[in-house]
């Protein structure tokens, strides 16, 4: 592994975050029952979070040792391109919106909206075609899961009448 490439943009920050998360979690684990005994509920969580802190330190060291990849661009720009492009941000935002709407509007309406939006955004075809595709796939999911598998799909608080 001597020919390891340089670290990815944001890798060091992520490694540091892992470490910080480990420390905070360890503190929480200590709070459960402290060092009071060897069979208390807090011992194993402390072992796990302790492992996270130690492993986190190694990860930070590893990331720091590998050094930055040589390229003309600055790290934030590379981060935006390689790790979190706009497309990912938009998709995550759409997913969040979908998950918030799901219990409110129910499965059918919220999924229809989500599928329409994401198909149109990612596939970029004629909106009519998108509408047809979203309708078909939603219908297929509904038949398979609601009717064949008999899964209870979220009904929605606001639009309770639309299954």
């Amino acid at each position: 592994m001597s020919t390891q490439p340089g670290r990815k943009p944001g890798e060091l920050v992520f490694a540091l975050l892992c470490c910080v998360f480990g420390v905070v979690a360890f503190q929480q684990a200590y709070g459960i029952s402290g060092f009071g005994g060897l069979t208390t509920p807090g011992v194993f969580p402390m072992l796990a979070t302790g492992t996270m802190v130690v492993a986190g330190l190694f990860i930070v060291a590893g990331a720091a040792r590998r050094g930055r990849e040589r390229s003309g661009e600055s790290t934030p720009i590379r981060f935006m391109r390689e790790v979190l492009p706009l497309r990912h941000c938009i998709m995550i935002a759409l997913m969040l919106a979908y998950l918030v709407l799901l219990p409110q509007l129910g499965f059918v309406v919220s999924s229809a909206l989500f599928l329409l939006a994401t198909f149109q955004y990612l596939w970029r075809r004629n909106p009519l075609l998108t509408l047809l595709l979203a309708g078909l796939s939603l219908g297929a999911i509904y038949v398979v899961f609601r009717i064949v598998f008999q899964v209870v799909l979220p009904q929605g608080i606001i639009l309770g009448w639309t299954i």
């Binding site: 998709m91 997913m95 979908y98 998950l99 799901l102 219990p103 499965f107 999924s111 989500f114 599928l115 994401t118 198909f119 990612l122 596939w123 970029r124 595709l133 796939s137 999911i141 899961f145 899964v151 209870v152 799909l153 979220p154």
Partner: peptide, 26 residues
């Protein structure tokens, strides 16, 4: 994949919800 990925998300969300009908899970 432009069609596949949104469908995975919908199935994942519904699948998670189906276990306990609890919005927090999703």
């Amino acid at each position: 994949r432009a069609i596949l990925l949104p469908l995975i998300i919908v199935l994942s969300a519904v699948g998670t919800y189906a276990i306990q009908n609890n919005p927090v899970d999703i």
